[in-house]
């Protein structure tokens, strides 16, 4: 199988969920890497410089995913992730997990450090669709 549609990093502590994302995205010709924690995820971002990051909201602690995304998207010129801040982030959340985090790119984009959300349980077609959209909107730049 040709894996040329893009490099995707999955930061998720649930191994079974990683398998799921891998299975779906690899079937659609993406190259998928994974990291089981926020710390390793950040390391891998530097290592691999992926085209897109799939990030779980709940890692070791609730909301850790948000902190990680905030680090990656920091506008601070001193930030060590400055050169990675353009990488789109797709967040995974449990259904209505935190109702407050119900996401809409138009209204929440300013303060939520992610380009889009997918709710768990994940519908495979929705995941593929969102990944494709994010990579397409990024492509022209």
């Amino acid at each position: 199988m040709v894996k040329n549609k893009g490099k995707i990093l999955v930061i998720e502590d649930d191994e079974q969920m990683v398998n799921f994302v891998k299975k779906v995205l690899e079937a659609h010709s993406y190259q998928v890497d994974s990291a089981p924690s926020a710390e390793e995820g950040l390391k891998k971002v530097k290592e691999l410089s992926p085209d897109l990051i799939v990030l779980d909201v709940m890692l070791e602690t609730r909301g850790e995913g948000f902190i990680t995304a905030q680090k990656l998207k920091s506008t601070d010129p001193e930030s060590e992730y400055r050169e990675y801040s353009h990488i789109p982030i797709l967040m995974l959340t449990a259904i209505n997990a935190e109702m407050k985090f119900r996401y809409s790119p138009e209204t929440d984009g300013e303060y939520l450090p992610a380009e889009d959300f997918v709710e768990k349980p994940v519908e495979p077609s929705e995941l593929v669709q969102k990944v494709e959209n994010l990579l397409a909107s990024k492509a022209p730049s």
Binding site: Q16, F20, K23, P121, V122
Partner: peptide
């Protein structure tokens, strides 16, 4: 409870949609 249940549900969808 919800987290593992979501994972199970997602994985079952893989089967039903032919990913496995």
């Amino acid at each position: 409870l919800r987290s593992p249940l979501s994972t199970i549900e997602s994985t079952l969808k893989l089967f039903l949609q032919g990913y496995a």
